[in-house]
């Protein structure tokens, strides 16, 4: 262990602002990317299912006219 205490770890030898800024932005943007990527599949499938419902409705209304 390189740090004597938790406070020393947080202080990063006086470079706390820069080190934690770098790590914060990195894991923050990775988190957003991961959540967005995981949600993509559901969004795509919902979009497709809406299309299916639209198509079926179209077919029905065509069938009623004739």
């Amino acid at each position: 262990m390189q740090f004597d205490s938790f406070a020393a770890f947080l202080d990063m030898g006086g470079y706390a602002f820069f080190v934690w800024l770098a790590y914060g932005v990195t894991f923050g943007s990775l988190g957003i990317l991961i959540i967005h990527s995981l949600g993509q599949k559901r969004r795509v499938l919902i979009e497709i299912s809406k299309k299916i419902i639209r198509e079926e409705r179209l077919k029905e209304s065509r069938g009623n006219k004739s």
Partner: peptide, 16 residues
């Protein structure tokens, strides 16, 4: 972050 030795010139900022 915890176990790598500190850089003798850059201190802990090198952990980036």
């Amino acid at each position: 972050m915890l176990y790598a030795p500190m850089d003798y010139q850059q201190g802990d900022s090198f952990r980036i």
